[in-house]
Amino acid sequence: MRTPSKANDVAADAGGGPEFPVGDPSAPDPCIQIRDLNAWYGDIHALCDVGFEIGHGEVLALIGPSGCGKTTLLRCLNRLNDAVEDARVTGEVTLDGQNIYSGSVDPVALRARVGMVFQKPNPFPKSIYDNVAYGARIHGLASDRAELDEIVHTSLERVGLLKEVRARLDEPGTDLSGGQQQRLCIARTIAVDPEVILMDEPCSALDPIATAKIEDLIDELSAEYVIVIVTHSMQQAARVSNRVAYMNQGQLVEVGETDRIFTNPLHKLTEDYITGRIG
């Protein structure tokens, strides 16, 4: 199923790249390269010939109206769509030059390198300590209890949660407030020490104060991790990202430096969206 083409929105050919300009799809020091990525859920064509790069040290914001394929794209980056019963993905996504959809890549190992934070905080029904320790435990990252303690403490410290929960590490993670739960989930993700962190609207369920804390955290983490963040909020995209990709109806419309996209969008569609006329 093709999306209906618009005046300035020419559909891509099967073989080559998009014929209309998408801005600056390539990054100087690419970490993730996406080529000809297509995804279907049953008969629904959710991603359509998407191709661009995400560089090391980047925070890339994925923006676009609801149902445009942002989350699908994000879930293609750690192969989380594999488990969805009728999902199908074609194309190529490379992580440091290696195609993650090739047979030799184990999705389990891949997810140790590409972590993910979800829209709604989803701590495990376990203690705070076990929530953070879980990833390190299954991947065997600590050889003894002391090392595990170290990992848990560092991770909690980095998300600024340690001083709030130091005395109640044994209490269930589900007892924390929403913002704390989300930071716990981020701590859980960085405890595995991934290269990339995917964030799917991490602040949409939080109040403004908790949101600000998470945004600060993203800023700090960006020094060490490549971050891909899906967001509905233009302001958040402008605040935390250095590049922005705008998607519409399963297609990549435009990608480029955040400042450039917000001040000088190439496409009318992009402009309409960021100025709030559609979406």
Binding site: V108, R111, F118, N122, G135, I138, H139, C185, V192
Partner: peptide
């Protein structure tokens, strides 16, 4: 969502 959280951490 809890299952996906664990899956995204790389749990089998």
């Amino acid at each position: 969502s809890i299952r996906e959280g664990a899956e995204a951490l790389g749990a089998t």
